[in-house]
Design a protein around this nucleic acid. Structure first.
Length: 571
DNA sequence: GCCGTTTTCGGCCCGACTGTTTTCAGTCG
């Protein structure tokens, strides 16, 4: 049986969109949005939650939405949505993907002009129909026509946009018109993917007009979406949206807190403030009655004034960090210095580009205590995977090299998991290899149950230490397959098999919310999957995921020293 | 529609920018 999580998320999203077009209560719409967000953050099978009558335990899901989820799980359909769709066709919701068009405008376009789709909207602009609509002036129509070219921006892998982000903040710093420039938003929270950049800067308001002019006229800007004296949004030629928020220096901490978000974190903070008769905004924390300023200079002061310890940006997702900060029980997140080893590295013995010696030299020069060399074995589409003979040759080369280095080396392999969950490698190699990663490299479109079973079967193999890039996602190439993680974690505990956080920029697999869920049940480890020596630096992306997943040293296999690690492995 | 350290009703985060609304609704973050 398939997991129904995606279906439930889709149908409830549709309900939210249609309700928005119908102009329903914003609180009702918000309730559906919140329920969808909550469902995206759980790794459990929604069907099981329904069966065990635990679905209403999920925060944001109550009796009404819980009942609808039950109906979707049991019948695959939702009568309530079907009824709504008799009033508004589903396609109308596509209009809301255009910048500046929300539910109200989409509703008017449909009701007053019969426009159902983006294509219909283009036609209505072309033949002048849109101009006939009250309130739609030439300027407004031109703006919509322009916005049509760009649907609301997509998520992009953080590593791909890091350089753009620094370039823009450098540009702002170099104007010499600002005192401090910070990149906030999901960039500062170190999310694997970001939708836009939120830049926060403080300075003398006398300079703001000039800063905004320089910002909106940067050569990389393809379009100015909004611009005002304290806030502007531009679209860059590479389709990245950048927000710039300017504040006075004495609002620095409050502005950074606001800029960093997340939205859910901010809302929770403000809700708590409300109960304490405080108001929190981007200018500061105030007493509600008399507007008296309580704190604004630093984030630490503001958190403290709200009765909390400083919350690292990576945790600001309303996953319990606020409650933990109030009870002084935030996790001691891992740092770069805590990482003792890298357990997934390739060399030119398979599809890596660096030699064994080059890789070891590079790793030895970093602060690592150990690495695992894990070249490919099995029928995978690369030029030259290892066979038994070459594995032995590699071992010999390794033995000759080790004395020259301080770093400890596990001679491992990465093996392929076949469709049936078998391990495509000779047993002698599995016995001899000191760290065996099993990964899926083909047939990605099996059902959820088949994929889960495929991995469970592989984990049952007594020589497998770890599952590499567990969901197989590759940004801008393919979605990851869904897995039943509760079953996989159970099997991991039973068989002493661990899950990888693959740190390749285009993988970043598994996601932080999965790590958050499983970390206390089964240790994880970060592997760079390096193919070049410089790829060893990709460990950063894995650390981001681990930190966002609330990992402390005890949750990560590669925070163990070499000897402790060996004791943990099953062979 | 959800929720509760003022708890089963009456609230629900807060503010900037846009357009044409002469006082605010819509959209966004």
């Amino acid at each position: 049986m398939e997991l129904k999580n995606d279906l439930v998320i889709n149908l409830l999203t549709n309900v939210g969109d249609i309700l928005e077009i119908l102009g329903e209560s914003v609180y009702k719409i918000r309730a559906y949005r919140k329920a969808v967000e909550a469902l995206k953050e759980i790794t459990e099978d929604v069907e099981n939650l329904v069966k065990e009558k635990k679905i209403e335990d999920v925060p944001g899901i109550g009796e009404a939405i819980g009942g609808k989820i039950k109906e979707i799980v049991e019948t695959g359909k939702l009568y309530y949505l079907d009824k709504l769709l008799k009033q508004i066709p589903l396609e109308v919701t596509s209009l809301m993907k255009i910048e500046g068009i929300g539910g109200k405008t989409a509703g008017r376009l449909y009701h007053e002009l019969g426009i159902k789709s983006i294509k219909g909207l283009e036609e209505a602009i072309g033949n002048g129909l849109l101009l006939s609509l009250p309130g739609f002036t030439e300027a407004k129509v031109a703006k919509i026509a322009n916005a049509l070219k760009s649907v609301k921006s997509e998520q992009k892998p953080l590593p791909n946009i890091e350089q753009h982000a620094f370039k823009i903040s450098d540009f702002l710093v170099n104007t010499n018109l600002l005192l401090k420039v910070d990149i906030g938003g999901s960039f500062r929270r170190k999310k694997s993917t970001v939708r836009d950049l939120d830049i926060h800067a403080v300075g003398d308001p006398a300079n703001f007009e000039q800063v905004m002019k320089l910002f909106t006229e940067m050569t990389e800007v393809s379009e100015v979406i909004v611009t005002g004296s304290s806030k502007s949004t531009v679209k860059l030629v590479n389709d990245l949206n950048v927000d710039l928020r300017l504040l006075e220096e004495n609002s620095y901490g409050a502005g950074l807190l606001y800029s960093t978000g997340s939205r859910a974190h901010t809302i929770k903070l403000r809700t708590i403030c409300d109960k304490k008769n405080l108001t929190l905004n981007e200018y500061g924390l105030f007493k509600e009655k008399n507007d008296e300023l309580i704190a604004s200079l630093t984030e630490t002061e503001i958190y403290k004034a709200m009765g909390m310890s400083f919350i690292p940006p990576e945790l600001r997702e309303d996953r319990g960090e606020i409650e933990a900060a109030m009870s002084n029980s935030l996790p001691r997140l891992i740092t770069r210095e805590d990482i003792m080893g890298d357990l997934h590295i390739h060399t030119n013995w398979s599809d890596g580009k660096a030699s064994l010696k080059e890789m070891i030299t590079a790793a030895d020069n970093s602060s690592l205590e150990y690495i695992a060399i894990t070249d490919h074995v099995g029928k995978i589409p690369i030029y030259r995977p290892l066979n038994k003979t070459r594995f032995n040759e590699q071992k010999k080369e390794l033995e000759n090299l080790v004395s020259d280095f301080e770093i400890k080396i596990l001679h491992g392999i990465e093996v392929d998991i076949t469709k049936e969950g078998k391990i495509d490698a000779p047993k002698e190699m599995l016995i001899e290899a000191e760290f065996v990663i099993a990964s899926i490299h083909s047939l990605f479109d099996l059902s959820e149950e088949e994929m889960t079973q495929r991995i469970l079967t592989a984990m049952d193999n007594e020589y497998i230490n770890a599952i590499g890039h567990p969901t197989g996602r590759m940004f801008e190439k393919r979605e990851g397959y869904n897995l039943n993680f509760s079953k996989i974690v159970e099997k991991g505990k039973e068989t002493n098999t661990f899950l990888e956080i693959n740190a390749q920029p285009n993988r970043q697999d598994i996601d932080d919310y999965i790590v958050f869920d499983i970390r206390v049940k089964l240790p994880v480890y970060i592997g760079t999957d390096a193919h070049y020596t410089k790829d060893l630096e990709n460990i950063t992306w894995g650390i981001n995921i681990a930190r966002r997943g609330w990992c402390e040293k005890k949750h990560l296999l590669n925070c163990l020293g070499y000897k402790e690690l060996l004791r943990k492995l099953k062979h």
